[in-house]
Write a protein that binds this DNA or RNA. Structure first.
Lengths: 262, 262
DNA sequence: GGACTTGAGTGGTTTAGACCATTGCGATTA
DNA sequence: TAATCGCAATGGTCTAAACCACTCAAGTCC
């Protein structure tokens, strides 16, 4: 990964606590992997274990880390293959569809379910409604070039958008909001953190439970500053990364600094 | 995590491939954990294994996932303790110091090493210099309230900032750039992805090798659009999350769309 | 009192082996 | 020919056990 300045060999001369065998094996497997083109296959676990003179457990630990980093793909019953690298997703206030298209990818989106429920106090505060008011909850599976990319759970205040549940489908949500309610997005607050896949998420994403995920939360507001939606999305950490463009702080009249630790 | 809408119980009625024992155990341990205040201790691995009637290996797998999620902290030789939650770091073009201070935290920063090396072609392109030109590489350890937070590796073009290596220290790099070279930052392109800690990183961050990390790359430009630095930072994924404010795309004259997949 | 040693208890690593679940292909069969 | 079955190979889960490395406190020695 571009660490080509001279003198990088011994990063820490400290005391070298001890190098676990699975780490050393991981490095050797990474070397082996460099000679394999994306999609190519690797030897089986048992073969690797005997070849390198370690137990299968140790092999699995090394392979697990390489898989978490997206450098390997493993298919139960079939084999272990070289990974495909990460796609990028831009952090910006535009629709998923046009964003993906600008990257030359074919985006699709399918509505998993739409439910109406009552807002708890926390959610009510986020959406600018009263506790107990109706909230429309949408779950979408987003794909890029057919491959599952993220599970997105949106929550919108029904009192502000009466009848919204009858308009939503696989199409653009933001389009519906604009056409039926005249709402345009102004800004959003987005947080990014790591997470592990739940079994349910893994099943939808073609993933493994416990896999590395990126968790995005987005709190969107319209051009007049009123809350529009609260979204929680999980992305496969081994397949996607995010890009943001930061600008010099001159339009920083964001006096509404919200404290939301944890 | 605010999943309080009714009907959340059975997320996927699909076919339920099988629930591994370590997953079930993880849920039970999470329950057990809810009754423990942050910093409180849990029983040892061997005790848990016999209490739940599983092997120590299975206990360790469940504990490992909870640790990766930041819900547990484990100390070799001492015990297993409840986690402390995540701190937030804002994605913005301001100094680390003032950002942390605005969150009420005491930031410190120490220079690990400063080296001069030759740029490879890729790095030269990023920094707007010729391949082989001198590059100053700085490694910093950033802390918040004394706790190691991130390892930051910056690379700056020495031809543009002659003598910079004599000015750098534990203080603000951006301050030095402004005072000695009149450089102010204009914008930056930042990418965020997941990674696993290397043993060297883990040693510096008080972490475990293979732990979940957030990897930030920042490519900064001055107010005239010339590249200033290229930074690569690793943050503990179990302790930090990032916040960005997105604004409506009106000033999107970013015709310099750079393709940097993988 | 202060410095050192010792040992019990903790998490960390590794092994060898068993069994399960999925895949895919070759042989068999209709 | 086309569908089906069986089986071997693969990755996934789990166990029991051994040993290592670190921490901390109790005990010991000076």
């Amino acid at each position: 990964m571009g660490e080509n300045l001279p003198g990088d060999a011994v990063e820490n001369g400290k005391k070298s606590p001890r190098t676990p065998k699975h780490w050393e094996l991981k490095e050797r497997l990474a070397d082996l992997l460099r000679a394999v083109s994306p999609g190519g296959s690797l030897p089986g676990e048992r073969a690797l274990a005997s070849e390198f003179g370690v137990s299968r457990t140790t092999v699995r630990k090394a392979l697990a880390e390489l898989t978490a980093e997206g450098r390997l793909t493993r298919v139960h019953g079939s084999g272990t293959f070289a990974g495909e690298g990460k796609l990028t997703q831009r952090l910006q206030l535009s629709s998923y569809t046009e964003d993906m298209r600008s990257h030359g990818r074919r985006p699709t989106s399918s509505l998993l379910d739409a439910r109406i429920g009552a807002a708890d106090p926390e959610l009510a505060a986020l959406l600018g409604i009263r506790s107990g008011d109706d909230v429309l909850r949408l779950r979408r599976l987003r794909r890029a070039d057919g491959e599952p990319m993220a599970i997105e759970t949106s929550r919108l205040p029904l009192p502000r958008f009466p009848g919204l549940d009858r308009f939503v489908g696989d199409g653009s949500l933001y389009g519906v909001l604009y056409q039926h309610y005249g709402v345009e997005l102004g800004h959003a607050e987005e947080t990014i953190e790591t997470a592990l896949a739940t079994p349910a998420e893994a099943a939808l994403l073609g993933n493994e439970a416990g896999a590395l995920m990126l968790l995005l939360s987005r709190h969107s507001f319209d051009t007049e500053g009123r809350p529009v939606e609260w979204v929680r999305s999980v992305y496969r950490g081994d397949r996607y990364k995010f890009v943001a463009t930061l600008v010099s702080p001159q339009s920083s009249d964001e006096s509404t600094e919200r404290e939301r630790e944890r």
